[in-house]
Amino acid sequence: MATLIIAEHDNSILKPATLNTVAAAVAIGGDVALLVAGEGCQAVADQAAQVAGVSKVLLADNAAYGHQLAENVAPLVAELAKTAGFDYVLAPATTTGKNLLPRVAALLDVGQLSDIVAVESADTFKRPIYAGNAIATVKSLDAIKVITVRGTAFDPVAAEGGSASVEAVTAVHDAALSRFIGEEVAKSDRPELTSARVIISGGRGMGNGENFALLEKVADKLGAAVGASRAAVDAGFVPNDMQVGQTGKIVAPELYIAVGISGAIQHLAGMKDSKVIVAINKDEEAPIFQVADYGLVADLFEAVPELDSSL
């Protein structure tokens, strides 16, 4: 058995989500190869070669793959899967993986299993449906199994300790269907939401965007990422990439602190697998308290500064 994993990267750094996906591949068993498709991404291939459990790195370094446009990368992955005899094609369930992999599956004329959270056997997997309100056990009937992996469900493999060979892939697919125009990427010194050990999130109760500074202070003391509920995003307090929930990011940190968040189903779907949940809300009846390990009924504008000064 052999698995091809699409490495998540930005042409310079291998993203941690890749390590969780390798863990899923290790759980399946067999050889694991990582595909690094990008432009000027040799450094990523070198990092990929160090990842524990990886036996081969395929490096497709070409301008056509620079922004990892699905129209160009999907035919490359489909070709590799067919010609190199991979039984599984995996990618992290990030926006990059979600964008690319169904296009690969359709080119291979197979279905896709999205967002798996457990490997039951070589062909059977668990995945959440209905925003995590039910867990389906699904058997794949296809010869090549195309799967995206929910990172929070698999502990990452070690980023170092491996010694995979790096092989260049020279095939170039340039569909000339789409072009990259630009991006606005939020710059922050804080950890990324999906890989943070601690997250502090604010909801509608924050009142406005400026008040998120209160959470940022606490975040900096705890080395935490700052998140938000959909209500806070919809109200325009903070940008959408901070959103935790069914329609935002799915997180499972060791500590999740929900501040001024009522606990709508769609938010709970994104954070209820956190190890320890703290809720600070002045409404005693807020549903967030039903999932919180530690609930504090208090005015957040008093409690958060107090928390800040006691850390």
């Binding site: 279905g111 299993l113 309100n133 039910a134 949940i277 390990d293 009924v297």
Partner: peptide, 24 residues
């Protein structure tokens, strides 16, 4: 058919926690 649904189960319930009285 490309997949077969074997079973569906409810997600693991979180145990209810406790209320604390103060930030301290």
């Amino acid at each position: 058919a490309h997949t077969e649904l074997l079973s569906v189960e409810p997600p693991a319930e979180r145990k209810g926690g406790i209320k604390v009285g103060s930030v301290a």
